[in-house]
Design a binder for these strands. Structure first.
Lengths: 242, 242
DNA sequence: CGAGAACTTGATTCAACTCAACACTGGTGG
DNA sequence: CCACCAGTGTTGAGTTGAATCAAGTTCTCG
């Protein structure tokens, strides 16, 4: 187990904004450890407070809310570089649950020390706020997708998003990347039924645009995916890392 | 025109977390002025940067995104106490537009001075991040609404939300409050067609639960609204004010 | 008084939902 | 070792909630 942020595998990915030496040494002190969890682990539970906050180092998960009627809304997918627990950090409790979909490696922080960030390291606090704005931006896009796009557009939009994000993380190879979720997860993210999600994925497969099988996504025609999904900005923007 | 934050009409509303004297005097220096705009004014344009940021003092507006296919998604409604321009502040450009639905009175800040907040006043920077988390939370709820609720549930949920928020702002009187939007705005917020929105509002009116007419919302049975809308937390939580 | 914007209402259509099987996989225990 | 089961994915048939189309009505404002 390494506590050395200089070795952090994520830091050098081009998608993440660079650290100053000062930031780096601060983060090493701020970090409280690393954690490995199995697939299926609940990292946060909706409505509960949380003493630990995480940055995803590897693996993926889902963030979701459960409604009174038992239905579930997947709010976002957690991928490497994502910071988990902002709501717990500032509001005291999480308003959605987070569950690991694969084994995950997490960088751990203590919630009690978050305020130090604001007091002693404005640049890092600014980065945290930046990440919150990135998340707000994503949720707005997701809202527009669920509210205004057709099923085919929704699926294309989301597959495009996954693929581009994986590319930015350097996790794509030969037109394929890992996509370790169930069709039910995607259905719950897009407000579609499982059956319709399945049939819509089949349409993209039949049209030789993309194929999602065995937890792997193969994209044959990224432009077509972007076009069908009405994607406005094709590339993932740089973002800070906490 | 008053620049005196001690006189700020919002500050004493119980929904907003209190200011320390130090915060108050800082904000007076931070504030760059006030602005009055007519209904219909574009405060921000999607994709553009913005030199000014605002806190809504009075009046209401809508935040929305426009898709390539011309459809529009209303992301949220801007109400007194809301901070507008977080994305412009930290990411450099707004990812949604903001338009005034009524005449609005706004407290104006310069974007160029936002970083001062982080450097010199950690408590205020923390509050800004808190507001970002509140927005993230709302967008997650909205996502769950659009993705998982039926049309009747969506309408009930949104009317309940408006009413409770107005109550918290002290803007409700005798079971009615101002709701100065068009049915098209609500339709675009909930991912429904205008026609279906209209028919669904008629159902709530016929059932004597709520009536929205002439920019005013009358709620006859708030509990029924909460029940139909599957509302989990009936009251608006306290939040900071910037 | 005409024009435009918002709101209403009825008729028809369709995209997505539900229901119902069935296939494939990996794990478990008799 | 194999039967069984639970979880996931696939496909067809029939249903329905919400969309679209089409016509008004009401109101404001120049």
């Amino acid at each position: 187990m390494s506590l050395d942020c200089t070795e952090c595998p994520l830091r050098r990915k081009s998608i993440f904004l660079p650290f100053t030496d000062q930031e780096l040494s601060f983060m090493e002190r701020f970090k409280s450890g690393e954690m490995f969890v199995d697939a299926g682990t609940q990292l946060f539970v909706e409505g509960a407070s949380a003493a630990q906050l995480y940055t995803v180092l590897s693996g993926m998960g889902i963030r979701y809310k459960t409604l009174e009627n038992g239905r579930r809304q997947v709010v976002n997918f957690a991928m490497p570089g994502d910071f988990l627990g902002l709501q717990a950090a500032v509001m005291g409790e999480m308003r959605h649950s987070v569950e690991a979909s694969t084994p995950m490696r997490l960088c751990v922080f203590n919630r009690s020390r978050v305020y130090e960030l604001f007091e002693n390291h404005p640049r890092r606090a600014y980065s945290l706020t930046y990440l919150a704005a990135v998340e707000e931006n994503f949720l707005g896009d997701a809202l527009a997708t669920i509210g205004q796009r057709s099923a085919l557009e929704k699926i294309a939009w989301s597959l495009h998003r996954f693929f581009v994000r994986n590319q930015a993380l350097g996790l794509e190879k030969d037109g394929t990347c890992s996509l370790p979720f169930r069709q039910q997860d995607l259905a719950d993210a897009l407000g579609l039924s499982l059956v319709h999600t399945n049939k819509t994925l089949a349409r993209l497969r039949d049209r030789q645009i993309a194929r999602w099988h065995d937890a792997r996504l193969e994209v044959f025609d990224l432009d077509a995916l972007a076009q069908i999904g009405l994607v406005d900005e094709p590339d993932a923007e740089d973002r800070p890392l906490i």
